[in-house]
Amino acid sequence: MADNIEINKLIAVLEQSELNLLVDLRTGDGFNEKAYEKVVEMLTLFEKEWKEVSSIPKEVATIMVELYGELYNFSLNYSGEESERILKAAKNIKRLIEECLEGIEEAQLEKNQLFTKLFAYINEDGHFFEKLRSGKGFDDQQFEKIYEALESIMDEVHSWETLPKAFITILINFYEMDLFVYTYQEEFHQEEEADKIYDAYERVFELIAG
């Protein structure tokens, strides 16, 4: 088990590698293989390091929340092999993140009063995200209740140094809401729903990232 100083060093390596990877993609410089490999190495280390714990440092949680969504979006800015390479890397990183967050039951967190409402609202009426995935559209009313609950949680956890794994999984779902925009435009051909999803994503984005 690594000590705190060692962990902080590894977190700094993950942060820098993530930034190098994303900045290169945004500026059109392409996929930075070296930075990607470093990200994978760090996530693999953290998966082993935090297997038995229920919460992980916020800096790492932030990266976990945004990384797949950012990479997926950037893959759309490239074409051919480069785009496929980015998408493949994004999927691999998503798998690693899911492994890092495994092991702690959502039910455990639901018992925590702070999170009870949020989980209840998400699970209502056939689960908010499941409905989005299956093309049943965007439920405005349900979203408003979820947003309100999320807002009060974000105020509370702002001062926390670590975040519960099950909550990070929920935040990932919110952050990746904008990816449904493509699905609703291209697959379900529901432009209006896509529009509503994007607006909702922007509100949540400002809450959890911006």
């Binding site: 979006n73 800015n77 493509y182 994007y198 922007e202 984005f205 400002e206």
Partner: peptide, 18 residues
């Protein structure tokens, strides 16, 4: 109006940015 400068920079490079 609600889009912040930071939000513009973060999302400006995305295909679905409005």
């Amino acid at each position: 109006e609600h889009i912040t400068i930071a939000g513009h920079v973060n999302n400006g490079g995305k295909k679905n940015f409005k």
